[in-house]
Design a protein around this nucleic acid. Structure first.
Lengths: 205, 205
DNA sequence: TGTACATCAGTGAACGCGCGTTCACTGATGTAC
DNA sequence: TGTACATCAGTGAACGCGCGTTCACTGATGTAC
């Protein structure tokens, strides 16, 4: 903030922020190093003081995204305890909220072609996010009779798929494709119906 | 086929096919006119005999995709009649099959930034696909008591979201992200649980 | 407090490259007579 | 069947552009004395 002049002071983060904004508007392949550096008020060559190159910058943006994502999801999950049901619901809402509040991160994480195994840090951050989702599903599925209980990883994959689908198709404004309902409602009702199918919600709601 | 030489014979379709293969491997923004024309064995300038430019080529690919998609979905839907349940199940399976068999089309349709309203033909093809999906949902929801019946468009949006999510997260091999289950199983069980939640499938399966 | 100096974040010019698009052209094809 | 000719699908060279990356450099900063 206060530091300016020849030395930027916080160029690394400024570049990541610029990249995220660009990714948000132009997609992960539409983003260019040159434009990000220009946005940050710096020469393209300056990027190489902080990153190994283009891919490395995107990977770092994704890593920060996974970290925030895991934090938010974990916090939402804890905030609903000790009710497994409340914890699960909060987790689902946090998912959509994250995708809407941080679209650049979301795209870098799930739509860029960066492998999640690119660096150990990225893999760890991604795994942590995954584990929280699966933990929420596992907790909740404790309430299902064993013989009709699907594996927690399947349960969590279903919810994740529906959440991701709602984000991609109805939350992000695909050009020319109108959403019939607010995405929050769509996800809330969708998950509700699914959970009822598992016997976790009373048929009378 | 038989026609070759100075005149290509069927360059327009050859360019679309080349574009689809490229889109499939490099994403909608990674695709280049030059590479598509080279693949088709032709100079980049030749493209302009058949298309207005880059975007126009993608739009045409998407249009063909919507057409095939609507045909396949419609056929699957009809093949399950008169049972609404069978028709709906076939429709869901056709969705996934399309995404897997024609990934280039699927990406051009749902992941490119081409507006569905770009041309009247594209809008019409897209609407037809949409209508078939919604019709299947509406038919099936006839079997739900009116007072607990969600709007058909919401019903269809839920199923579409879950299908799209399964495709994006687990069917397409996101680099480094392993699918815990075959996507077909994931979608079949997911939709099954959802339908049970709507009271459309017996709790005992 | 003042000065000499090492550090290193950012500059600016340059590179080779592939892009989408344009243009005047060429030559294969198919039709009219 | 043979020839003249119009059509138009494709060529090839050229354009201006922005890309990611490299390099020797410069000058602001912070530390040692």
């Amino acid at each position: 903030m206060s530091k300016r002049g020849y030395h930027h002071g916080n160029l690394k983060q400024a570049l990541i922020d610029a990249a995220l904004t660009l990714i948000e508007t132009k997609g992960p392949t539409g983003f260019t190093l040159s434009e990000a550096s220009k946005t940050a008020g710096v020469t393209p060559a300056a990027v190489y003081r902080h990153f190994d190159g283009r891919e490395d910058l995107i990977a770092e943006a994704a890593r920060q995204g996974y970290d925030m994502f895991a934090d938010l999801i974990e916090f939402a999950y804890q905030s609903g305890q000790p009710s497994a049901m409340a914890a699960f619901g909060a987790t689902g809402r946090a998912y959509l909220a994250f995708a809407q509040k941080y679209p650049g991160h979301y795209i870098a994480m799930f739509e860029s072609s960066i492998s999640v195994n690119r660096t150990p840090e990225l893999a760890a951050a991604s795994k942590r996010a995954n584990d929280v989702l699966e933990k929420a599903a596992a907790d909740l599925s404790e309430h299902i009779p064993v013989e009709k209980r699907p594996p927690a990883s399947m349960f969590s994959a279903h919810i994740w798929a529906m959440s991701h689908g709602v984000v991609e198709l109805f939350a992000r404004n695909s050009p020319g494709r109108a959403s019939p309902f607010p995405p929050e409602d769509l996800l809330e009702t969708g998950i509700g119906i699914y959970l009822r199918g598992l016997g976790l919600i009373d048929a009378d709601d």
